Simulated scan of single mutants.
Amino acid sequence: MLCDEDLECIVCCHQYTRSDRIPRILHCKHTFCAPCLGRLCKMDGVIRTITCPMCRWITCTRASLALPGALWVNTEIWDQIPKVQQVKQDVTEDLKDAKAQLLKSSLSFSGQSVFKSTLQKVFSCVLLQGQGMTDC
């Protein structure tokens, strides 16, 4: 069992998560969150290097691989991350999606209303011109 200190990145002091702060292992076996590793990496041609902030060991990966594909997840820490955290995030994302869809549908509805009222004006003008009135 890991203590609470082991469940947070020592660079940024944030707790690891199952979504954006995934614990990834360098070749020296030290673990840091993915965003911190992204800030620590340097590109050198076709090689990406990450110098470990603890032991200075240099981890090299192919630059063509994205960081998540190049470094393993620390499963010992991953298993200790509460799954409730993932459920909360899923619910939050679902709410954001629902809000975006509602906003989109209301915008398209208001757009339809504007289009409909414009059409009504055009056709009323056509009808008026057909009756000999030219107010439009």
Results as ranks from 00 to 15, higher is better:
11 V>K: 11
3 C>Y: 12
47 I>V: 03
111 G>R: 00
32 F>R: 01
116 K>W: 08
128 L>T: 09
10 I>M: 10
118 T>L: 09
4 D>R: 15
123 F>I: 08
109 F>Q: 03
89 Q>V: 13
116 K>C: 04
28 C>K: 01
5 E>A: 06
63 A>T: 09
77 I>L: 05
45 G>V: 01
18 R>C: 06
70 A>R: 06
104 K>I: 00
10 I>L: 06
95 L>E: 06
18 R>N: 07
94 D>A: 14
36 C>F: 00
134 T>S: 07
50 I>K: 03
2 L>A: 11
128 L>P: 02
8 E>S: 13
39 R>T: 05
83 K>G: 11
44 D>T: 05
68 P>S: 08
66 A>E: 15
129 Q>F: 08
88 K>L: 10
131 Q>N: 09
122 V>P: 00
68 P>T: 03
22 I>R: 07
67 L>D: 01
21 R>Q: 09
70 A>T: 03
63 A>E: 08
88 K>Q: 08
12 C>A: 02
55 C>Y: 01
116 K>P: 01
97 D>E: 14
63 A>C: 07
90 D>Q: 10
127 L>D: 09
92 T>R: 15
96 K>D: 12
42 K>E: 14
133 M>N: 06
69 G>I: 02
59 T>N: 02
22 I>W: 00
109 F>D: 10
95 L>I: 05
39 R>K: 09
114 V>Q: 09
57 W>Y: 10
23 P>F: 03
28 C>W: 00
106 S>D: 13
43 M>K: 14
63 A>K: 08
14 H>Q: 14
83 K>F: 13
42 K>C: 07
115 F>H: 04
123 F>D: 05
95 L>C: 09
51 T>C: 08
136 C>L: 02
46 V>R: 13
7 L>F: 05
58 I>G: 02
99 K>M: 12
93 E>R: 12
51 T>M: 06
3 C>A: 09
42 K>D: 12
116 K>M: 06
86 Q>L: 15
115 F>N: 01
33 C>K: 00
32 F>S: 01
